[in-house]
Simulated assay, not measured.
Amino acid sequence: MRFTTLTLAAALCAGAATASEVAPGDVVFNGSAVEASLTGVAGNADEGMKVYSSKKMGNCIACHQISSVDAPFPGNVGPSLDGVGDRWNVAELRGILVNSKMTFEGTVMPAYYRVDGFIRPGNRYTGKAADDTFGPLLEAQQIEDLVAFLSTLKE
């Protein structure tokens, strides 16, 4: 009984910490922009740089280069992110990161904060595809951090 009570208390505390976080299915688009913060907490540009450059997080660097970032093998599939903070406002950047398909139809850029609407062909062929209970590629705060970082990239 004691273990159950402690587990329940920990779960309630964890839920309270993320109570203001917008769930992926509840994100509101205004056209292709997302006006409201996903967390209500300002993004941290230094943490956003880590999301951009880390292969274990956003891995943006696999497709996009930034000339001021000295990194081996930056990608060139997507456009350069130099000056992206001048080309897009914060809401537009957030919208592109949440679901790039809302801005760029047919893009190969992943929707980093989307969890539904995917085609799972493995079940039809093998019955062994993962279930549909997976989370977004990036957490809400990682999106906000990445927006903060990209906003600093001015011409």
Rank of each mutant, 00 (worst) to 15 (best):
M1V: 13
F3Q: 08
T5V: 13
T5E: 02
L6A: 08
L6D: 02
T7E: 01
L8S: 02
A9D: 01
G15Y: 04
T18F: 02
A19D: 01
A19G: 02
A19P: 00
S20Y: 07
V22C: 05
A23K: 15
A23Y: 09
P24Y: 09
P24R: 11
G25T: 15
D26C: 11
D26F: 12
F29N: 04
F29V: 10
F29H: 03
N30A: 13
G31Y: 06
G31V: 06
A33V: 00
V34C: 10
E35H: 12
E35Y: 08
S37G: 08
L38Y: 15
T39F: 12
T39G: 06
V41T: 15
V41D: 09
A42F: 01
G43M: 11
G43L: 05
E47F: 13
G48T: 09
M49H: 12
V51C: 07
V51L: 08
S53A: 05
S53N: 01
K55N: 05
K56E: 07
M57H: 12
N59D: 13
N59P: 00
I61P: 00
I61M: 02
A62Y: 10
C63K: 01
C63W: 05
I66G: 04
S67Q: 02
S68W: 13
S68L: 15
V69W: 01
V69M: 08
D70G: 04
A71E: 08
F73S: 07
P74T: 05
P74Q: 02
N76K: 08
N76A: 12
N76P: 03
V77D: 06
G78Q: 04
S80W: 06
L81C: 06
G83H: 09
V84R: 07
D86N: 15
R87L: 12
R87K: 15
W88K: 15
A91L: 05
E92F: 01
E92V: 05
L93I: 15
R94T: 01
R94M: 05
R94I: 00
G95L: 05
I96W: 04
I96C: 04
L97F: 15
M102Y: 01
T103E: 00
F104N: 14
E105C: 05
E105R: 15
G106L: 10
G106N: 14
T107H: 10
V108A: 03
M109W: 06
A111I: 08
A111V: 04
Y113Q: 10
V115N: 11
F118K: 14
I119T: 10
R120Y: 08
P121S: 03
N123M: 08
Y125D: 07
T126I: 14
A130F: 12
A130D: 08
D131W: 12
D131M: 10
T133H: 13
F134G: 14
G135D: 13
G135F: 03
L137R: 07
L138T: 00
A140H: 11
Q142V: 03
Q142P: 14
Q142T: 06
I143T: 09
E144Y: 03
D145H: 12
L146E: 11
V147S: 04
T152P: 02
K154P: 00
K154D: 00
K154Y: 00
E155P: 02
